[in-house]
């Protein structure tokens, strides 16, 4: 099994204005789809699909720092990925807003993120 060496770890995803306030959108990074949420509490990034039945989390309803999947209302904490209703935690990714309002995501590649 080869050890994945990511070419880079910081991804600039562009202006946060691409995502309407309170909603989420997906970004494709390598072979991984990541949902980024633009909430009133800041930006958060998680795996794109709900672990239950693959619902699109970016299309979910956000409340505070929680997201509810549009399929069967499983609910997760965006800061930790922990499930609040349902089972299985979400993978989360470090993400921040730069001073110019751009989204900056840290992505170390699949292997690195799934070690834990």
């Amino acid at each position: 099994m080869p050890i994945m060496t990511p070419e880079k770890t910081q991804y600039s995803l562009g202006s946060v204005a691409q995502i309407p306030l309170g909603e989420g959108r997906n970004f494709q990074i390598g072979g991984t789809e990541i949902a980024v949420f633009h909430t009133r509490q800041g930006v958060f990034a998680t795996q794109a699909e709900c672990p239950h039945r693959h619902g699109p989390l970016a299309d979910g309803l956000v409340g505070g720092t929680q997201v509810t999947c549009p399929f069967h209302a499983w609910k997760f904490d965006l800061t930790t990925g922990e499930p609040l209703m349902g089972q299985c935690a979400l993978q989360t990714y470090p993400v921040r807003l730069t001073d110019s309002g751009d989204i900056e995501l840290t992505f170390l590649g699949e292997a690195a993120h799934f070690v834990s």
Partner: peptide
């Protein structure tokens, strides 16, 4: 649009 393009730095 569900998935947005990632800009190349």
């Amino acid at each position: 649009i569900s998935t947005l393009p990632v800009l190349q730095a």
